[in-house]
């Protein structure tokens, strides 16, 4: 029992910097949702039921441009394929979890929780209590995402132009803080450099498909580089 709560607290603590960075992002989401005319319950409902930052932003921008429902749903699906890569990455470590637990924890699989869970797996491989660590991180992230949505919506009514302050920069610097320490081998750098260049070259592809293609290409280059490095 003791190690359960300890692991949950640790998961929340390690997610704290990412929550700090995601919070402004959630504020912007709430403000944007208010700006394009979603009701309060709808904005909060999207954060509570979908719980995926990128998907939510894309839905808003497509709603604002009066896209059809199937178009929005398809775009969100394509954008979420990267979460599928995350989930597949965690397959090694979740194989012995009971199925209902997996079904529950998968709902909270975000960039942030994935990042702290992989960080822990890198630093303390095989340490027990991963599920509680994951749960602590996920719940912490979830609560603050709802809070940010609510505050953003309320602020959006009072502070015009909040959505254009560039608060999304917080997410970018947070991701930099996660990726850089993970760049250890030469193959990691090759993978990162490829992802960087390819993402810029494909930025105008539809439905953010460039993001996915750039990632897949970068993974291929990383694997090739690690083969060459071993030979």
């Amino acid at each position: 029992m003791h190690s359960r709560s300890k692991n949950m607290a640790l998961g929340a603590l390690e997610t704290l910097p990412l929550v700090v960075a995601a919070f402004p992002f959630g504020l912007v989401f709430g403000a944007l949702a208010q700006g394009i005319g979603l009701r309060f319950a709808e904005a909060l409902g999207m954060s509570a039921i979908v719980f995926a930052g990128a998907s939510q932003f894309i839905a808003l921008s497509l709603l604002a441009s009066a896209a059809l429902l199937p178009v929005i749903v398809f775009t969100v699906f394509v954008v979420n394929l990267r979460q599928m890569l995350y989930s597949a990455n965690l397959m090694h470590h979740t194989g012995h979890w009971p199925q209902p637990l997996r079904a529950l924890l998968a709902f909270w699989l975000t960039d942030e929780t994935f990042a702290v869970v992989t960080d822990r797996l890198n630093r303390h491989p095989g340490e027990p209590g991963l599920r509680w660590f994951y749960l602590g991180s996920a719940l912490f992230m979830y609560c603050f995402w709802q809070l940010a949505t609510v505050l953003g919506y309320l602020l959006g009514e009072r502070v015009p132009g909040l959505a254009n302050w560039g608060l999304d920069v917080a997410m970018i610097v947070a991701f930099i803080g996660i990726v850089v320490p993970a760049l250890r081998r030469r193959a990691d750098w090759a993978c990162g450099a490829t992802a960087f260049a390819a993402a810029l070259l494909t930025h105008d592809w539809p439905h953010q498909s460039g993001l996915l293609c750039a990632s897949l290409l970068a993974i291929a280059v990383g694997m090739w580089a690690s083969r060459v490095g071993q030979a």
Binding site: L85, A88, F175, L211, A214, G222
Partner: peptide, 27 residues
């Protein structure tokens, strides 16, 4: 999972997050 696929998945965090960073910072 076949071993090469497992190896490929190890590159997922770097590949995906760097692609998001590149577009977020420069586009």
């Amino acid at each position: 999972l076949p071993a090469p696929l497992g190896q490929a998945l190890d590159f997922v965090p770097i590949a995906v997050l760097t692609a998001i960073i590149a577009q977020g910072a420069l586009v």
